[in-house]
Structures are given as structure tokens and as C-alpha cells.
Design a protein around this nucleic acid. Structure first.
Length: 487
RNA sequence: GGCCCCAUGGUCAAGCGGCUAAGACGUCGCCCUCUCAAGGCGAAAUCAGGGGUUCGAUUCCCCUUGGGGCUACCA
């Protein structure tokens, strides 16, 4: 007897961009599938007609693709158990609903929102769990006709057996028992004929032969309802795994006010898919060794639910920044350039059009060890652009106003003019000779030059800065700085 | 309110009855250095509280407290 292949899915509802929590669920499922050689399915749960949109669906797919989490079956790519969009599966659900109705495991309910709300209020007042008490459980044909005549639209409810323990055997939480009395007959088909989440999700998982349902902990309390549906249709339950939630800084569920919560925002800020994924996988899961920086391939090899954490994790941007920085350090020059391009354009650095690509590549490469995301590139490369620099502050001005500065700059200028080439090595030698000729301490030499050619008292190493600026630009900047000082 | 989950430094976390309670981010200090970073080294910092069980509890059980989730014709 061979184990069935592992089949997992990510089933977002397209009501907004891909949330960071959703991305982690997708990642866990994807890793599980890849690790075991199984299948990863993408299903769209769009039964909330009001809030679902194709636009969101596109956004989610785009984010998933950007992350590199491709799906083996699902929307767009198809598969043997489609369609993979729930609103296109209405006939399928109808079939199951009819069977449930025929067998008496489900029934029509004609209660109105007001009546239901009233019932909830009363139960809550008595300190009991608000739930449906079964008003329409035993309706006669006459009563149904009467309601129909009133123009009421019926929902379909599942008949939930009383006094029953509903067991959820969870891969990360162990056995969790719920009392069926606390659940009540819940709606499986809305009055417009569209199934509810707790119903559709089960039918689909059965039909799509899903073996492992891995999702956020917010679904744990809903799982007994789903188990009840499995039992009603006579299907075995898959294995469940409820992963802890991702919380905001204040320990409440991540939401807009916690800053960027969608994958596309991180993409926009120039985070790398590998960096974001690496950060996400460490939230609620830990590797056995001490390594923390992983490629996707490495994660595929070692990931399992065994080390999934039960406690919720706070999203820490500082750690994300560090992890992403580690991934950026591994980029080559071309990859760096690719990462930088949108920000160079945005920052207007390419408008001048007079910069060679090869030069730009070198400039961008200087930022590699200093940034944690692409959006930080402009502030680091600004110093390489333009023919003159404004003095950053009084401290910078003071450096140039020092007595020895003038002499240093003259020496430097002279040597730059005479230099045949400006490379890291030659600049190093050149600067050393300025130190020697002036007899000044290094700092008294480097600083005035730095400020004169960059306007700032901080920045890239001189052996990086000078060659990249080139003789022509340096001379212009020196002239500009002198001009400024006179004024 | 009811039900369910969770509880190790500021944050992510290892630990699975006996440890000086790992590691990482962040913080601080030192080194490197023309500067800012990066990098290297080092430091401070944790078992929520109370009961049990046990020769021995961070670890097992109960209670309290705290946090979170669910309680929809949302997913």
C-alpha cells in the first residue's frame, strides 16, 4: 500500500491584494507539496459575490507569480478537478445539496435576518453561545408553501446532530474537541443559491482530493463545521494543520494600520521574493539548525510541519530588512541593476539620459552592501549624479573652511588633472600622495576632498566615489564648491 | 458573554523532567576606518503569576491573568 501523493491547496478569496498572512499560507503549502513531490492547487473562493472581484484575483495571482509560488493545478492552468473558481462550480454544489436535502441531513430555512438577529440577542443575553435553535427544522409542506407565498427566500441549513463531540485532529495543535451543541444548524447555501465558505470548501477539497489542509489559525474554530459536512456527505476528512497567526506590532491581527500588509507593497518597495519568503517562513516555523538565510530550494529540502509553532508571531520589519539585505548581498551586478531600475527612473536619475548603462551598473553595485530594499537605492546613488553639490549642512561647510582645505583641494585637483586613469588603486595612491605632499593627517585630506566633491561628510569610500565620478565631473564639482565658498 | 487556540529576552525563537536556558534581529560597547554603512568581536536582556505531580520543573496537570481567533445568508 503506497501513500497517496500529497495534495495541498491555497484557496484565497479575491477580496483584496495578497495579504502577508495569505502569502505565508501559500508558501507553507507550496513547500509541503514540493518537499513531498505532491501537487499544489490554487483555487479561488469567490462565493462572496459582494466583495470578490476579478481584479483582486489578478492581483493575487500576480503576487504569487512574483513570489515564485507556481501552482500545478488551478485557475488558468486547469487540471483534472476543475473548474477551480467556486462560482463556476455551482452545479456541483447543487448536486450535493440535493442529496443532503433528500436524506434529511439538510433542510430549508425561511427565517429572516431580523428573526435570526432577535434569536441571537436573546441567547447572548442568557449567556449562551448565539446559534441557530432550529426554528425551521421540522417545517411541514404547508408551512413551507406559506413562507414561499410570503415571498421568503430559503437558505439551506445542515442538520447538526446534538450532544456530539466533534474532533479535529490537527497536525500542529493535536486533538481539539468541540461540542456540537455549541454549533447549531448552520447555513450551507445562501438564499441566492450560492454555497457558504464552510460548505463549498469541503466539497471542493473532497473533489480535488486534497490530502492536507494547511491554513491560518483563524480557521480552527470553523473546522468542526467542516468536519460535520464531511460526515454528512460521507467523506473522510483530510489532515488539518492550523498555523499560528501573524500579528502586528501591537499584537493584534495584522491590518492596514500596521503598515504594509500586502505582498505587492513589498514588491513595490524593492524587496526580493526570496527575502520576503525567507522572512515569512521563519514566522511560525523554525529550522533545526542554526542557518537562517535560505534559498527557496533549500527550504523545499528541509521544510516540514513538525517544527511549526503554535504561538502567534509578531511581524518585525527590522528582521525582514536584515534578511532581505542578506539576499541582496548575493545579487550580481546585473541583478542589482534590474532591482534598481524602477527606482532610478522614479528618482529621475535616468531622465538626463547621458549616463551609460555600464556606468550605471557600477554605480548601483556600490549600494549592494548598504541597502535592505530597492527603494533605498536612490538615496545612496544620488551622490554620483550632477556637476555640483550643495553643502549638506554647517558641518560640511566648516570642513571646507578649514585653513588647510584650500591647499589640499589644489593638490588634489592638480593630481586628478595629471592622472591618466582613475581606478580604485590609482586613486588610493593619488590620495596617499596628497597626504604626503601636504604633510597633513589623513582625515584633514580626505574630508575636505569628500565634501568638495560630494557636499557631504559621509558617503561611499573615496576609492569608490572618485573613479566613478571621473576626472571631468570632479573638476566641475571642485570649481562649483570653490564658487560656493566665496559667496 | 460562550467556545477554541496560545503564553521562553523588545521581536523571531531552540528547548520536548536534570542545561551556566541555544541562535538570530534590534539595542549598547569595542575593533576596522577619511565618513556613513557593511563586516568582526563582545555585552545587557527571557521561562506571566499561583497551586499541584515529581527526588527534581521552562518542560507534565489545574487555576488565574494576559493575548488572539471563532461565534454571519464573510472567507
Amino acid at each position: 500500500m503506497q501513500d497517496r501523493e500529497m495534495r495541498v491547496r491555497f484557496a484565497p478569496s479575491p477580496t483584496g491584494p495578497l495579504h502577508i498572512g495569505g502569502a505565508r499560507s501559500a508558501l507553507f503549502n507550496w513547500l509541503l507539496a514540493k518537499h513531498s513531490g505532491g501537487k499544489f492547487i490554487l483555487r479561488v473562493e469567490d462565493t462572496d459575490l459582494e466583495r470578490s472581484s476579478r481584479e483582486s484575483e489578478e492581483d493575487i495571482k500576480e503576487s504569487l507569480c512574483w513570489l515564485g509560488l507556481s501552482w500545478d493545478e488551478g485557475i488558468d492552468v486547469g487540471g483534472p478537478h476543475g473548474p477551480y473558481r467556486q462560482t463556476e462550480r455551482l452545479d456541483i454544489y447543487r448536486e450535493y445539496t440535493q442529496k443532503l436535502l433528500d436524506s434529511g441531513q439538510a433542510y430549508y430555512c425561511y427565517c429572516t435576518d431580523e428573526e435570526l438577529e432577535d434569536e441571537r440577542q436573546k441567547l447572548a443575553a442568557k449567556g449562551q453561545m448565539p446559534r441557530y435553535m432550529g426554528h425551521c427544522r421540522e417545517l411541514t409542506e404547508e408551512q413551507k408553501d406559506e413562507y414561499e407565498a410570503q415571498g421568503r427566500k430559503a437558505t439551506v441549513r445542515l442538520r447538526v446532530p446534538p450532544n456530539q463531540d466533534v474532533l479535529v485532529d490537527d497536525l500542529v495543535r493535536g486533538k481539539v474537541v468541540f461540542d456540537s451543541n455549541g454549533i447549531g444548524d448552520f447555513v450551507i447555501v445562501k438564499s441566492d443559491g450560492v454555497p457558504t465558505y464552510n460548505y463549498a470548501v469541503v466539497i471542493d477539497d473532497i473533489l480535488m482530493k486534497v490530502t492536507h489542509v494547511v491554513r491560518g489559525e483563524e480557521h480552527l474554530s470553523n473546522t468542526p463545521r467542516q468536519v460535520l459536512v464531511y460526515e454528512a456527505v460521507g467523506a473522510p476528512t483530510p489532515k488539518f494543520g492550523h498555523v499560528s497567526l501573524i500579528l502586528g506590532k501591537d499584537r493584534s491581527k495584522m491590518s492596514k494600520r500596521h503598515g504594509a500588509t500586502s505582498v505587492e507593497q513589498y514588491k513595490k518597495n524593492g524587496y526580493l521574493p526570496s527575502g520576503l519568503l525567507n522572512f515569512l517562513v521563519l514566522l511560525g516555523w523554525s529550522p533545526s539548525g542554526e542557518q537562517e538565510i535560505f534559498t527557496l530550494d533549500e527550504l523545499v529540502k528541509i521544510f516540514s510541519l513538525d517544527h511549526a509553532a503554535k504561538n502567534p508571531a509578531v511581524f518585525d520589519v527590522d528582521k525582514l530588512n536584515w534578511i532581505n539585505a542578506q539576499h541582496i548581498k548575493k545579487l550580481n551586478d546585473e541583478q542589482m541593476y534590474e532591482l534598481a531600475l524602477p527606482y532610478l527612473m522614479e528618482g529621475g536619475f535616468l531622465l538626463e539620459g547621458k549616463y551609460e548603462r555600464a556606468w550605471l551598473v557600477k554605480v548601483v553595485a556600490t549600494t549592494r552592501d548598504h541597502i535592505s530594499c530597492g527603494a533605498e537605492i536612490p538615496q545612496h546613488v544620488a551622490v554620483y549624479f550632477g556637476d555640483g553639490c550643495e553643502l549638506e549642512n554647517e558641518e560640511a561647510r566648516a570642513v571646507l573652511e578649514e585653513e588647510s582645505a584650500d591647499e589640499v583641494l589644489r593638490l588634489f585637483e592638480d593630481k586628478v588633472k595629471k592622472a591618466e586613469e582613475l581606478t580604485a588603486e590609482s586613486v588610493q595612491a593619488l590620495l596617499k600622495s596628497v597626504v604626503k605632499d601636504s604633510g597633513l593627517p589623513g582625515k584633514k585630506v580626505y574630508m575636505p576632498i569628500r565634501v568638495a566633491i560630494s557636499g557631504q561628510t559621509h558617503g561611499p569610500e573615496m576609492t569608490l566615489l572618485v573613479p566613478l565620478l571621473g576626472g571631468e565631473k570632479i573638476l566641475k564639482r571642485l570649481a562649483y564648491a570653490r564658487e560656493k565658498l566665496k559667496g
